Simulated scan of single mutants.
Amino acid sequence: MNVFLWIVAGVLAAFFLAAGVTKLSQSKAKLGENPQMGWTKDFSAGTLKLIGAAEALGALGLILPGALDIAPVLVPLAATGLAVIMLGAIVVHARRKESQPIILNAVILVLALVVAIFRFGPNSF
């Protein structure tokens, strides 16, 4: 189970790091040009940067504390925070009546919850 949780955490970390760095490195206008990122028009540039920073830091929090054995309780906390971000994403896409992104967000939400539940509970460090 430990290997499975590391794999899931690694996949989540890669996804969130890419998403976070994209939001941090590109302007709001550039993000809005992507048809998959139409939701960015509903938020300010500062909010997009905040979301990007939270995603990037959450990605680091999924891997580094467990790998370095420094405050490993941060791993399930990071997973919980990323699950909250995905809940927010589901709400935003539901309001915009975008069903396709909701499916991806729900899958990522479930994976983040699996890491959070098992790292808080039976497979903690």
Score class of each variant (00 low, 15 high):
Thr40Val: 14
Ile117His: 13
Leu17Glu: 03
Ala112Asn: 10
Leu77Arg: 09
Pro35Gly: 12
Leu104Gly: 01
Ala9Asn: 06
Ala106Met: 08
Asn2Trp: 15
Gly61Trp: 07
Pro76Ile: 06
Ala116Ser: 14
Gly66His: 09
Ser44Thr: 14
Glu33Asn: 14
Lys23Gln: 11
Ala13Ile: 00
Met1Lys: 11
Thr80Leu: 14
Gln36Cys: 06
Ser27His: 04
Pro35Met: 15
Phe43Ala: 12
Val21Lys: 07
Leu113Cys: 14
Phe15Tyr: 06
Arg95Tyr: 09
Met37Ser: 15
Gln36Ser: 14
Phe118Gly: 02
Leu17Gly: 09
Leu82Asp: 02
Leu87Ser: 08
Val8His: 04
Gly66Tyr: 13
Leu57Ala: 05
Ala45Asp: 14
Ile117Thr: 13
Val3Ala: 15
Lys49Gly: 04
Ile51Tyr: 04
Leu60Asn: 03
Val115Cys: 05
Gly52Asp: 00
Pro101Gln: 10
Ala18Lys: 08
Phe15Ser: 05
Val75Gly: 13
Leu5Lys: 05
Leu31Ser: 11
Ala67Asn: 13
Ser25Cys: 06
Glu98Gly: 07
Lys41Asp: 15
Gly10Pro: 03
Thr47Asn: 15
Ala19His: 03
Ile108Tyr: 08
Ile51Arg: 01
Ala9Gly: 07
Pro101Ala: 09
Ala29His: 12
Leu82Ile: 08
Ala78Met: 03
Ala18Glu: 07
Gly32Asp: 13
Ile117Trp: 15
Leu113Gly: 05
Leu31Thr: 02
Met86Asn: 02
Ile108Ser: 09
Ser124Lys: 14
Leu77Gln: 09
Lys30Cys: 06
Val73Met: 12
Gly88Met: 02
Ser44Trp: 13
Leu17Met: 01
Pro76Gly: 04
Ala18Asn: 09
Glu55Pro: 05
Met37Phe: 14
Val114Cys: 04
Ile85His: 07
Phe43Asn: 08
Gly10Met: 07
Met1Leu: 09
Ile90Ser: 01
Arg96Ile: 07
Lys41Arg: 14
Gly32His: 13
Lys49Tyr: 06
Pro101Ser: 03
Asp69Met: 12
Val110Pro: 10
Arg95Met: 15
Gly38Ser: 15
Ala9Phe: 02
Leu48Arg: 05
Gly81Leu: 01
Glu33Arg: 07
Val92Cys: 01
Ala71Gly: 13
Trp6Asn: 13
Leu57Phe: 06
Gly61Ile: 01
Pro65Asp: 12
Asn123Cys: 11
Pro72Arg: 10
Gly58Arg: 10
Lys41His: 14
Leu104Glu: 05
Gly32Met: 10
Pro122Lys: 09
Leu62Phe: 02
Val8Phe: 06
Ser44Glu: 04
Val75Ala: 13
Asn105Lys: 01
Pro122Glu: 13
Met1Arg: 00
Leu68Trp: 14
Ala78Ser: 10
Leu50Pro: 09
Leu82Pro: 03
Leu109Asp: 06
Thr80Ser: 04
Ala116Gly: 05
Ile102Lys: 02
Val73Trp: 15
Ser124Pro: 11
Phe4Tyr: 12
Leu68Val: 11
Lys23Asp: 02
Ala19Leu: 05
Lys49Cys: 07
Gln100Asp: 11
Pro35Asn: 15
Gly121Phe: 12
Val110Arg: 10
Leu50His: 04
Glu33His: 07
Ala78Asn: 03
Glu98Val: 00
Val84Pro: 09
Glu33Trp: 07
Leu64Tyr: 04
Gln26Glu: 12
Val8Pro: 05
Leu111Asp: 00
Val84His: 02
Ile90Trp: 03
Ala83Glu: 08
Val11Gln: 06
Val73Lys: 07
